[in-house]
Design a binder for these strands. Sequence first.
DNA 1: CTGAAAGCGCTTACAG
DNA 2: CTGAAAGCGCTTACAG
Lengths: 331, 331
Amino acid sequence: MPTTIKDIAKALGLSTSTVSRALNDHPQINDETKNTIRTLAERLNYKPNQAAAGLRTHKTYCIGLIVPSISTHFFSTVISGIQQVASARGYQLLICQTKESEDEEKKYIDALVSGRVDGLMISVSRGTKNFDHLRYATEEMPVVLFDRVTEEVDAILVEAKDYEGSHKGTTHLIKRGCKNIAHLAGSKGLVVAQNRQKGYEAALKDHGMKVDERMIVDCDWDKEKVPEAIKLLLRHNPNLDGIFAANDEVAVQAILELKKLKLKVPEQVAIVGFGNYPISEIVEPTLTTVKHHPRRIGANAAHKLLSSIDPGYTNWKEEYITSDLIKRGSA
Amino acid sequence: MPTTIKDIAKALGLSTSTVSRALNDHPQINDETKNTIRTLAERLNYKPNQAAAGLRTHKTYCIGLIVPSISTHFFSTVISGIQQVASARGYQLLICQTKESEDEEKKYIDALVSGRVDGLMISVSRGTKNFDHLRYATEEMPVVLFDRVTEEVDAILVEAKDYEGSHKGTTHLIKRGCKNIAHLAGSKGLVVAQNRQKGYEAALKDHGMKVDERMIVDCDWDKEKVPEAIKLLLRHNPNLDGIFAANDEVAVQAILELKKLKLKVPEQVAIVGFGNYPISEIVEPTLTTVKHHPRRIGANAAHKLLSSIDPGYTNWKEEYITSDLIKRGSA
DNA sequence: CTGAAAGCGCTTACAG
DNA sequence: CTGAAAGCGCTTACAG
């Protein structure tokens, strides 16, 4: 059995009230008393039971995190960023993954909202069509939505510069001289994918080019769908000379596929991705891509949530999220 | 304020005891009473406060996870595996990352052991030299150590087949005709790195080849150190014709570096990695490597921990951890 | 089958 | 400066 406040009180002939106050550095406790209590606490290796304290104070010092997947490069890096700022502020992180399922998302929200956490960070599942459970969460506690956001609920939002980045990436292809630029799009239902597509379309228009719906193929962020998509594009327009892909995984797969078809990258078809993930430096040619900031997104999301939980803490500076192009071999 | 057992009791003119029992499906409660209670609980969207329940029952239904890093491909995949089995058994996952620091590891163990979790899963930091805090944890609750294990403490261990896999990988190079095989080793202090090195050495000896200490270079799992390591090896032995790398990241970097030096892979130098991580399929030539099973390792570790927490649950079958070679272009 | 009571480990208004 | 008491939301032995 771990040491409790009671053990210390008994050993010292004091009340638990006094021990509790001493341990919490209450100003009205005699310094000597504090010292004795702390010394003994140290020696008995006393650790406060946060669950018990939380029961009284309605604070758990835990925040819940719900993501579609833990193991992709993007999300694992976001999580790492969140964990670091949460921990620095004395909060623990409870992690759940939905596997893109609305049911799982609902289940986890229910479990976490029931007194386990002080706030919630969510990246919405692809499968989520009904937003009632998210609305319920926002009524119960502070909620921040990141990356996979929705305007359907009233929560704090943290996003990457998807539109701007895609605009820059596409513009780079245009400046390079590409005339027939396709877009390998993400999942149509996701705002983040829509924003990237909008950035692509706007860049074309801004340079007096027409948007051809048939040059936009939904790959669902799924690299398996890339070979088919590329063939479709080439059938529609054999003059295809540029591709802006909604993420690096799809872009890299496109490079591999074009090479298989004996098309030269970037000479015949130039490619730009989104993410700057590790594979972008490994593929040959290396991938020109828009830099993503998963760690900063995580840190900002965590800071915003914690500032909403403890309005006292406000003096952090938001980390800057850019959308800079990293020029490499593929475009 | 969320609904409590008290609200339900009051609304129904029953005692909290009865409500609690009904909600926990206690056999001695009248079916009709159960129904009324459950119906109301449902309607009020009642969710039990697990922290409060845990205070009484000494169960938190949380397990703690301490890893050196959340965002590497290996660990993020392990975590995903852990999360899935924990969740399936009704447990939540608390995640901490040590950034390879012994101090952080100690801090997190202290925080988690203090009544927050029912058990602990740890992958030990590179920086950990003193194991007292791990020993302390094992005295307080069930602990499983995975991947980064140590024999210094009495815990449940879950490891990959590092020795066998490395033996197979090295043997493949030998069978291919390589005569001067180097090893790009992991961090010397880690058992997992030592086991991979031992597998390499044993394979050489088993085929009547000598182990040359100077053909083993410690890269510390760090791809930044690879270019230097390769140059060192070539200086020592210009006939270098094979490399077994302790992980894929290092192996891929070795391929890139050799290409830079105008050495042909696999014709002049053949390379085998360990891990089968995504980059191994993207690099050119694609990487021959030993398949790792991070998800299964996570699942097994979680199952073992939960079986140790609830000895009742025993009928799960351990997932099979193999060490098969995946032959691709680099060897 | 149901209830009153005690208690898990803590905090905190109230009193002295 | 310190303590007695109540209470956070739950469970459970004891009684009836």
